[in-house]
């Protein structure tokens, strides 16, 4: 349906997006995962025709959208990261305005407005000014404005930044419903790994403007299939004990968090007795030991050497 071909964007000599290739099939739910500054928003801006790529192409059903952006705009609903609404207008007035300029037919606009308000749970508060809403409510209206023209593809750029858990859950549930019940194709960007894990079947991981890994969740997690992840809690930590643990055979990586060590070792290797010995030789007690399932966060850490929130 939509694909990018070696899509690049250079701002003042700096590559914000570097030759990325991605594709989105109809009805899919795709996640674009990466830390702040990875190039997710720039990629979305190019796909949605707001930015012209420096090089490369965005294709809709095999046809370039660079010279003729009208067609892709018609099928896209874009939820920007910012609250792109008129604060001085009510939720209803905002949606009515955007519906009109999306050329939603007059005879169905009122019905569509009420439907999307119902969908985001703000039907009862539609006559209130947007500026009086909480951050989460504003974000919900922000999403509703992108749904008025019943887009085939919904692009959401970090739609849950800085909101309360209740609104966040509501938004995630709305997106899930749109994808699973209405068949809307979803491209969801976030630096919250758990959101992408929850909503998306396929994930692109971006860092420094490049796609560093791509695939289904299972495919990505299999990157870590040759390793075990162990969470160890100690009575206290010291540099010496960390050095001693790192020196144990088959241990590939040690990350220190508070009184815990997160250890990645070769799968199936027996490190427990060496670990206990290394810790106790420093007169420190091992209080907890737990084998963990790897997450996309771990995959990201494994690939880039840093966490999503770095």
């Amino acid at each position: 349906m939509i694909e990018t071909v070696k899509l690049s964007k250079i701002f003042k000599g700096k590559k914000a997006v570097d030759e990325i290739d991605l594709y989105i099939d109809e009805g899919e739910s795709i996640g674009l995962l990466g830390p702040n500054g990875a190039g997710k928003s720039t990629t979305i801006s190019m796909i949605s025709t707001l930015l012209k790529p420096t090089s490369g192409d965005v294709k809709l059903n095999g046809k370039s959208t660079i010279k003729n952006p009208g067609e892709i705009r018609r099928i896209l609903g874009v939820v920007p990261q910012e609250i792109a609404l008129y604060e001085e207008l009510t939720a209803y007035e905002n949606l009515k305005f955007f519906g009109e300029i999306y050329h939603v037919k007059k005879n169905i606009l009122e019905q569509r407005t009420q439907e999307v308000l119902e969908m985001v749970g703000l039907k009862k508060r539609q006559k209130e000014l947007v500026k009086t809403f909480s951050g989460g409510m504003k974000r919900r209206v922000n999403i509703a404005a992108a749904l008025l023209h019943q887009p085939k593809v919904l692009i959401l750029d970090e739609p849950t930044v800085g909101i309360d858990p209740q609104s966040r859950n509501h938004i995630l549930e709305t997106v899930r419903k749109l994808n699973e019940e209405y068949g809307t194709t979803v491209l969801y960007t976030s630096h919250y790994m758990e959101e992408v894990e929850q909503l998306c079947k396929r994930v692109y991981i971006m860092d420094h403007g490049k796609v560093v890994a791509a695939g289904s969740k299972e495919e990505l997690l299999s990157i870590l299939s040759s390793e075990d992840m162990i969470q160890v809690t100690l009575s206290e930590t010291s540099e010496r004990v960390v050095e001693k643990v790192k020196a144990i055979n088959n241990i590939r990586r040690v990350d220190v968090t508070d009184k815990s060590l997160r250890i990645i070792s070769k799968k199936g290797s027996s490190i427990l007795s060496d670990l206990v010995h290394a810790v106790e030789s420093e007169a420190i007690h091992l209080t907890n030991f737990q084998m963990e399932k790897p997450s996309l966060e771990d995959v990201f850490l494994h690939i880039t050497g840093r966490t999503l929130r770095d």
Binding site: S48, P80, F98, I101
Partner: peptide, 13 residues
């Protein structure tokens, strides 16, 4: 500033 203009552009207006 509030990106409403971008949203308007996306409507094909």
């Amino acid at each position: 500033r509030e990106r409403v203009f971008n949203r308007i552009l996306l409507t094909n207006s």
